[in-house]
Write a protein that binds this DNA or RNA. Structure first.
Lengths: 109, 109
DNA sequence: AGAATATTTAGCCATGTTGCTAAATATATC
DNA sequence: GATATATTTAGCAACATGGCTAAATATTCT
């Protein structure tokens, strides 16, 4: 399926702390570029580029109103990233169950 | 918390398709470096480096037996990455619920 | 000891990323 | 129409990444 075709850019976008902070801020709702930039010590073009990386990764969407660009989280792609990682869920459940069993057996001695 | 302190390198490691393929292969259990390298058209040192990127990201662990290095998935860090992304779960549930409500209302007309 | 096997390290090159400042573009306001 | 505001684009420097080959290291086998 083409569902996972953007994982490269999605995970790459998530690998930067500034971009993750932007994402977290957007949980509050849609925000303009300058709103997003305010708390950071970076020049505006730097933030603008971070936003466009998130946009190309489909993690955020842009809505232009006059001269202001509003950015919002894209639920779809976030969900896709989690779904990809969840294929490992069985694996880590097994691991923790085995650890649990091990500890439980210790208790019985 | 220091729990999310490795997210930069973890997501960066996941951003490469070769490394994701390696991870998927490791779901089958622990494998040697040359086993892992076999299906790829890359030189062995290239795969060796990909593995060490995964290792530094805490996504895999290494167990050395004689001259052979065995690699396994690290359940902990996989779980941490998913947990980080799941803070957005409320957000995307809301989004999809709103969409659902919208479609439902359409049905009623 | 010497040869074979498993893997890493070093060094190179091409490309991509992330920060900057300066300039361009688009829209709103006086 | 000129000025102010919101944002992007261009171009640069520093550094990181991902591929390669050649060489080094560690272990096993004869």
């Amino acid at each position: 399926m083409a569902k996972y075709s953007k994982l490269d850019s999605t995970f790459a976008a998530l690998a930067d702390p500034t971009r993750r902070a932007i994402m977290e801020y957007l949980m509050d709702g849609k925000k303009s570029v300058s709103d997003i930039a305010k708390p950071f010590d970076f020049a505006l073009p730097t933030i603008s580029r971070h936003i466009s990386v998130l946009e190309k990764a489909d993690l955020v969407t842009r809505e232009i109103e006059g001269r202001t660009h509003y950015l919002s989280l894209n639920a779809n792609q976030l969900k896709t990233a989690v779904e990809y990682l969840e294929q490992y869920r069985d694996f880590w459940s097994d691991t923790f169950r085995r650890l649990d069993d091990f500890l439980r057996r210790d208790d019985e001695t």
